[in-house]
């Protein structure tokens, strides 16, 4: 579109087609344009190639590589973290199980100990009580025997006194004793 800019638009409005065709060959095929086009194409394209191959493409490749590295590193780290978390969970489970087992044995031990202690105490107490019971029973028997002996002499005395009172003369001790003994049996 833009030729020498001073009459670019003006010419566009005044010509009604055809006038442009008269002067010179079809511009893309005009050999006069060849050398300036090729020279400037070589310059610009060469510069562009250098810019792309030396600056732009390494830069973009670097960006992409960095990003890829960062992503894989992050994924790697996430995997490591997950493994760590799983380890921690396993450790926690194990600790819990250990603690539970320990608590159970402790409880059982304590229970057994307490039961044994209680049993021993009970047996001790029972022994003491049995001994006291036996002593008491012996004492009772002794007291009973003593009392019985006293009854004997009281009965003799009473029989003698009754005999003396009835007969007026002292009673024969032997006879009284025999009589008492006969009644007692």
């Amino acid at each position: 579109m833009a030729t020498s800019t001073d009459h670019g638009l003006v010419e566009g409005t005044e010509s009604h087609g055809g006038t442009g065709h008269g002067k010179g060959p079809f511009p893309p095929f005009d050999p006069a344009n060849f050398s300036p086009l090729i020279i400037w194409l070589a310059l610009t394209f060469g510069l562009f190639y250098l810019l792309m191959s030396k600056v732009a493409l390494p830069q973009v490749a670097d960006i992409l590589k960095t990003r890829r590295g960062k992503i894989s590193k992050d994924i790697h780290e996430a995997h490591a973290k997950r493994a760590e978390a799983q380890d921690a969970a396993a450790t926690l489970e194990k600790t819990l199980a250990d603690a539970r087992a320990k608590a159970l044995t402790l409880a059982q031990e304590t229970q057994a100990k307490l039961a044994a202690e209680a049993e021993a105490k009970r047996q001790g107490l029972e022994g003491t009580l049995n001994a006291q019971l036996a002593a008491s029973e012996a004492k009772i028997a002794e007291m009973k025997a003593g009392a019985m002996a006293n009854v004997d002499s009281i009965a003799k005395d009473a029989a003698s006194a009754i005999v003396a009172h009835l007969t007026g003369k002292p009673a024969d001790d032997k006879a009284v004793a025999a009589a008492v003994a006969s009644t007692k049996s």
């Binding site: 579109m1 010419e11 566009g12 010509s15 442009g20 065709h21 079809f26 511009p27 300036p36 086009l37």
Partner: peptide, 13 residues
Amino acid sequence: MDPIHQFQIAPIY
């Protein structure tokens, strides 16, 4: 309105 005009090459310098 010459449709070929846009392909014209003109020296600037």
